[in-house]
Amino acid sequence: MRKAMKWMGTLFIGCGCGLLIWLYAGNAKADNEQQEVIEAFKSIQVTEPLNETAESTSDAHAGNQDVSEVEGILSIPQIDLKAPVLKGADAQTLNRSLGAIEQMDPIGEVGGSYAIAGHQARVFGKFFNRLHEVEVGQELSFETLEKNLTFEVFNIKIVRPHEVDVLKARDGIAMLSLVTCYPAYSNDYRLVVQAKKIEE
């Protein structure tokens, strides 16, 4: 009996160590993939205007990463987030990174509304898992090929999934909304953090 218990204990310890290694390796891989996309995006910025020479330079410096689907880089220093925003917010895209919700206005357009969706709870990668820590008055940035936009958070709401009116444009401001499921590991509500563009 003691021998069996000892064997079971060893087995559980081994499984726990294996799980920790798997989680660490997975997080490192996800972080590396995100960083490669960011670096590829940056290399295109450096070689503007985008032409054949720029494309070849970008490929040489960024490991042949395809950045045609990247709309920009979202940075929120308060929650240690810097991640590429891909076009579209389907399940496949959101498993890879943040995604720009389709059929919205261009980012930074006064009187327009642009929205980014992201998972909150993930095994690998960070995405929006700390979005609930963002507070009104904090600043975030969105970097495109052409410019770097700064936004200030002015509204934080928790809504039902069908309450999409929260994303409607508002007169006089360029609005950016960040949307994720809420609470963690639940699909019952949406946490919506809204910010308006400010002039630097």
Rank of each mutant, 00 (worst) to 15 (best):
K6F: 08
I44F: 06
A195G: 13
E163N: 14
G118N: 04
V192A: 13
L167T: 11
Q138I: 04
D188Y: 06
V166P: 00
A40R: 05
R170N: 13
D80W: 00
A121F: 09
T93A: 12
S186F: 09
Y185I: 00
S56G: 02
K82A: 10
E200W: 12
L140N: 09
V70K: 11
T53Y: 04
V70P: 04
E152D: 09
V134A: 07
T10Y: 13
M1R: 12
N32H: 02
V123W: 11
S186I: 08
G18H: 01
D105P: 05
R122M: 15
N187M: 09
Y185N: 15
S186L: 08
Q120V: 02
E52S: 15
E52D: 13
L178I: 08
K87D: 10
E139D: 10
T53W: 05
E109K: 08
P161L: 02
E109L: 12
Y189R: 13
I158R: 11
E52P: 00
D105L: 06
A115N: 03
R170Y: 09
I107A: 14
V164Q: 05
L81T: 11
N95R: 13
Y185Q: 14
V166F: 05
E39M: 15
D80C: 04
P49M: 00
I79M: 07
L74H: 03
N148Q: 07
A169I: 03
D66T: 09
I173D: 06
A25S: 07
P161F: 02
N129E: 11
V37Y: 03
E36L: 06
E52K: 14
K168T: 10
T144C: 05
E69P: 00
G14A: 03
M8I: 15
I107E: 03
K42Y: 09
D171V: 10
A184C: 04
Q34Y: 02
K126N: 04
K87Y: 10
K147D: 13
G26T: 08
F128L: 07
R160D: 14
D105M: 05
F128W: 05
E143W: 04
R190T: 04
F151C: 09
A4I: 13
S97R: 13
K82R: 14
D171I: 07
Q34G: 01
T57A: 15
L140P: 08
L94M: 14
E109W: 01
D66F: 08
D80N: 12
V85F: 05
L74I: 04
L11I: 14
Q34K: 01
G118Q: 04
Q103P: 00
G112K: 01
V192C: 11
S58L: 06
F12Q: 08
L191T: 08
I173Q: 12
P183Q: 12
I198A: 05
A91W: 04
I13V: 15
E52C: 03
L23H: 13
L94C: 11
L11K: 05
F124L: 02
L178C: 10
E152K: 15
E200A: 10
G72W: 03
A54F: 11
S186M: 09
C15Q: 11
V85S: 08
W22A: 15
V164S: 06
G63Q: 06
S56W: 03
R96Q: 14
G108I: 04
